[in-house]
Design a protein around this nucleic acid. Sequence first.
DNA 1: CCGCATCCTCATGGATACTG
DNA 2: CAGTATCCATGAGGATGCGG
Lengths: 208, 208
Amino acid sequence: MRSYGQYCGLARSLEVVGDRWNLLIVRQLLIAPARYRELIEGLPGIATNLLADRLRDLEASGVVERRLTGTGSTVEYALTAWGAELRQPIESLIRWSTPLMVRGAEGDAFRPEWLALAVPALLDNRVTPRPSARIGLDIGGPLLQLRSCDAGFQVGLHDSGDLDATVRAEPACMLGLAAGALTLDDARTLGLVEIDGQESVVRTVFAA
Amino acid sequence: MRSYGQYCGLARSLEVVGDRWNLLIVRQLLIAPARYRELIEGLPGIATNLLADRLRDLEASGVVERRLTGTGSTVEYALTAWGAELRQPIESLIRWSTPLMVRGAEGDAFRPEWLALAVPALLDNRVTPRPSARIGLDIGGPLLQLRSCDAGFQVGLHDSGDLDATVRAEPACMLGLAAGALTLDDARTLGLVEIDGQESVVRTVFAA
DNA sequence: CCGCATCCTCATGGATACTG
DNA sequence: CAGTATCCATGAGGATGCGG
């Protein structure tokens, strides 16, 4: 990216992560370290030369590092400690995007792994989950698992073990609302959330 | 911007504000509503056609609105309520940029008004300011005023009235550290901040 | 297969001149 | 003053090639 030539934190940030695809690559690596091929799959629409270019740029600027996998035969991409701190601005943008998500997917590609970022971003610090609740999340594909923890929620694939409940929800519902498969009362009945008295984003996320 | 075609909050956000210059335009409007000419001045390096294009895009997507000034003779650009919520992700990026600011300006353009965003972003919720402290901030240009309030700090041009203290600081110091004109002890002595016991970003901001 | 590099075409950005 | 119009340089996107 061409420099903005401005001594401003925002401008200098954008010179590192403002190029097209860059923040989406960071999104994928926030979900989990990944190999080249996994990144291609998790970033539908990206051209292979662009992914290679961007990975080089991000490595040169200290956001991404390439590591050898266990066998040492192939490389794996992961975020540096500084790169992982992009979780905050990315979660902020996900929260900001809520009005853009209500209209649903409209043919856009969707990957369940994206919920691992979006759900904590939308719930974190805004609700008081029942301690150690485990909720299965059925979005039509692989069963996801939402587990409450100290810092909010962790989202991942359901591996095994008992669940306190399973709810069926459209991605639109979890990603920004709409659809309305899961209402606020549903969530409260399931013991998934407790509203703190004030109007909160949970009302938006879960309302029909 | 060409669509990413991904049903993901981050991707949809970037389709609105991910284009080059877009977030910097929002930065300027977060500082204050402005006219076309003021935006050109506050965005050194932007081409006039690009600013016009971007303002059209941002208006169409509901981030910016154009209003008539008091006299009704000229237009002024301002953020919508939704656009103003970009303060959160922008402040996050400013915090993230700290390692990029330590090397100083290096010939990049600098405008004191940018501090009005950066200083609160770096201090907010991380320190306990003495109630209603008023600190003059001498960065070599117009005298800035830093006033503690409930939500953290407000930064603006010093208009009039008594100040509790005046400190001389390099922009690098306030924007991300380095330079070291203002130490943590300076700040504490001035009653500007009290550290909350834990290591905090203030240590980074004010350390030499 | 995986992990890129090359080539080509076309859309976008940037600088400057110009207009209502 | 507040933008358009124009021209050129750069970068994105898609297809394909190629060594390990």
